[in-house]
């Protein structure tokens, strides 16, 4: 279970998180929605320890993330980055097996390669992409490789940062379905941030809306359309008029 309690974060004068309270139960898929620049990525990176919160507490399975032993803690996580964040200098299989080639989870090269190829197959990629470099792949294929890397070490918790950004609607659908299948199959706790409503409906068990640095609403995905919250209604219907000010 992941719990955020009164998390604050500011960058200079920009107070991004102003007291975030959120609980993600174990094995559930939580999707955080909100406009661009509302602090969704900062919130996600705070849980991973990539950004240090100014105040508040983040607890993962009873452990405070600021005091936990980093390597063992991070070994439980997998993350799919918005742009893939694949390492340009490594081949596709070396990217996928990155964690299995070094550190505490190190395995023999042949075994790591076999696992990488199996994970690539799981995300719909053939073995012949394994020895290519990321720059030789299309955007959709890079996302799949990123997904394969995120699940390579069988993590208990997976984060997805804008998984469908930059993809066409069909490829977005494919990635959404893959994420849902993998999360269910692995029984992992998932946290996704997105502003793509098709992703929300495909991936989420629960939804939380972040606006003005706080969680405006959270609840079951099936309650989202009838929740009555003006912020959520404006966002999911894409209206320019409403409590969320649109910059024109």
């Amino acid at each position: 279970m992941i719990t955020l309690h009164q998390v604050h974060k500011a960058f200079g004068d920009n107070h991004v998180l102003r007291g975030v309270d959120l609980t993600i139960p174990k094995g559930e898929s939580m999707v955080i929605i909100g406009g661009s620049g509302t602090g969704k990525s900062v919130m996600l990176k705070s849980v991973l320890g990539l950004v240090a919160p100014d105040a508040g507490q983040i607890i993962v399975d009873g452990q405070d993330v600021t005091t936990v032993e980093r390597d063992a803690f991070l070994a439980r996580f997998g993350m799919l980055f918005q742009g893939g964040a694949l390492f340009d200098s490594l081949t596709v299989w070396q990217n996928v097996a990155f964690r299995l080639l070094r550190g505490s989870l190190k395995k023999p090269t042949e075994e790591a390669r076999a696992i990488a190829i199996e994970k690539l197959r799981r995300v719909g990629l053939k073995e012949n992409v394994a020895d290519r470099f990321p720059a030789e792949l299309s955007g959709g294929m890079q996302k799949r490789v990123g997904l394969a890397r995120a699940i390579a070490a069988e993590p208990e918790i997976i984060f997805f940062d804008e998984p469908t950004t930059g993809l066409d609607p069909i490829m977005s659908g494919v990635i959404n379905d893959l994420i849902r299948e993998i999360v269910v199959e692995m029984g992992a706790t998932a946290m996704t941030i997105t502003h793509d409503m098709s992703s929300v409906r495909a991936i989420a068990d629960d939804v939380a809306m972040l606006h003005d640095g706080v969680i405006q609403w959270t609840g079951d995905v099936e309650q989202m359309d009838s929740c009555g919250d003006p912020y959520v209604e404006q966002f999911i219907n894409g209206r320019a008029e409403g409590p969320i000010e649109a910059v024109r």
Binding site: K45, L48, G49, L50, R70, D71, L74, A75, F77, G78, M79, F81, Q82, G83, A85, L86, F87, D88, F98, R99, R102, G103, S104, L105, R149
Partner: peptide, 16 residues
């Protein structure tokens, strides 16, 4: 370039 494309963050999440 690795920093702006989040590859440095990815290294951290991969326990490196």
């Amino acid at each position: 370039t690795m920093k702006v494309t989040e590859q440095i963050d990815a290294l951290v999440t991969l326990s490196t």
